[in-house]
Design a protein around this nucleic acid. Structure first.
Lengths: 189, 189
DNA sequence: CCTTGTGAAAAACTTCACAGCC
DNA sequence: GGCTGTGAAGTTTTTCACAAGG
């Protein structure tokens, strides 16, 4: 979250940022931000703020994002295609290095520069250096694919299907349920 | 969140569910769930659990989801198109009732049964009963569109662009930054 | 025996306040 | 004057423990 806001300032050529600047932008209180940053190890400059580039490097290291990482995408439907060509992953240093689908119509086609492979071959991920996967398949197929991903040595799954996934503890799952997020809006209006 | 899990049980024909069942499924502790439900007003049956249909009705009422709601979609790019045809919104009772884009290539075309309109006409939303919007435009355009939406009387925005939006307090914004979510996975693996 | 509902204890998080430094 | 770093205070959230009911 911080990374996005700070990277934005960095692109605007900003050298230093103060906790209260960030607080305003992120709708947080400034001591909150200082406390968070102090967990990273203190490196702010009193009277000036935090050095933007140092801050970015520090956060990247904590998130283990120093080097570019590869991720696999499973599901080349409309959502999958949109994600495959989404430029936003680049900011965090991610490359979509493999794409899988069940549909024979899609297998063999290219999305960008990546060829769509048969999900049946998911196990082949074990021999690659891909340890993250994005799941953009229908909910009813999600658990099955997740099992294959786990079997293929995947360590983290970003699940776009509206369901919970049962996985071993060593695998981290983050679920984004877009419809659910929309569902909580009426509560506030 | 509860709604998704409970609706799932409902489709499987389950009549009652206990707090510990849900806890297992949602990776929470059972007293947590009982406490949450008790805020809704207690209606569990001791020794049996909660009546699934009553629970769904109760949650829908709290989230103001009793009747179907309309939402506008701004941005008919790849992501926008994927969302427009995403069946998941239906579960929560949402209809995508209007779609907007800037591109002349897209304006006038249909996505599903909805015709894409020019964003310049966003203000026309004021005369409709649409009070929620989904924003699927590039980050650099998001604030501008958000301003138009606010001007058109929109009360809630689901923002898919990786940026913060400045809006009046009466408007609720929920931002989903898919790349950011992927970005926190390496931290855990 | 299985469950809920809830007060009390514990933990986590947030905010405040201010000393110290540029 | 403007800002960081941090202990202390305050607040919210989570967990525990258990009485009471089907």
């Amino acid at each position: 979250m911080y990374l996005r806001a700070i990277a934005f300032l960095h692109r605007k050529g900003r050298q230093y940022v103060s906790s209260s600047d960030l607080a305003r932008q992120l709708h947080l209180k400034s001591p909150q931000i200082r406390k968070d940053f102090s967990y990273f190890g203190a490196f702010g400059v009193k009277g000036t703020g935090y050095h933007v580039e140092t801050l970015i490097a520090r956060i990247r290291r904590i998130l283990k994002l120093e080097s570019r990482q590869k991720a696999a995408l499973v599901g080349a439907g409309k959502l999958g295609k949109a994600l495959a060509e989404y430029p936003g992953f680049d900011v965090y240093g991610f490359d979509i290095a493999a794409i899988y689908d069940v549909s024979p119509d899609k297998i063999g086609k290219r999305i960008g520069s990546v060829k769509v492979q048969d999900v049946a071959g998911l196990a082949g991920l074990r021999d690659s250096d891909i340890r993250l996967a994005i799941l953009a398949v229908p909910a009813h197929a999600a658990q099955r694919v997740a099992d294959s991903l786990v079997g293929a040595g995947i360590r983290g799954i970003l699940n776009l299907a509206p369901c919970y996934l049962a996985v071993p503890k060593r695998v981290k799952v983050i679920t984004i349920d877009i419809a659910m997020e929309l569902g909580i809006l009426p509560y506030y209006v």
